[in-house]
Amino acid sequence: MSTLEILGLSILALVILGGALGTVLSKNLVHSVLYLALVLVATAGLYARLSAGFLAGAQVLLYAGGVVTLAIFAVMLSARMEGGPIPNESGKRARAALVALAVAGLLSGVLLQAQITVPASVPVVDAAEIGRSFLGEYVLPFEVLSVLLVAAMIGAIAIARREDP
């Protein structure tokens, strides 16, 4: 890999990891959500680097657009119901850190032992290719997914609905 590529990747990695740390360590809930947005966008960049253009776009649209918006909404609404900004402290960091480190260690350990050969160049997977997969090999999960989305929508409405007095 060329130096530029390494640099690019490193920056992306730093942004991602830094944003993640911001999400979990921030004292302000809104800040946490915004850090998450940063992570999601940076990940989209990573996808692009990995020749997953369509996915990068979907990531930005759905995650950074949809999810983050939803999260902000929820934060505002809950704050209103709670009667003030939501406290965002964290507790029990030591043991959590231990577990997280263990997870990281385990996963990296396995990873670094693995032999993965990467072909030099691969055919680019574009939206058309993905579309063909959806309607071809993965048509069933695709249809089920649409049912799931409807169910989720209805479920969310049903749960959050205010009961009529």
Binding site: K92, A96, V103, L106, V110
Partner: peptide, 20 residues
């Protein structure tokens, strides 16, 4: 709930470590 999640992860770690 966080305690239960912790337990969950500990179990998971153990399983994976044992598996690997």
């Amino acid at each position: 709930a966080p305690d239960y999640v912790l337990a969950l992860f500990l179990g998971l770690l153990a399983l994976v470590a044992w598996g690997v």
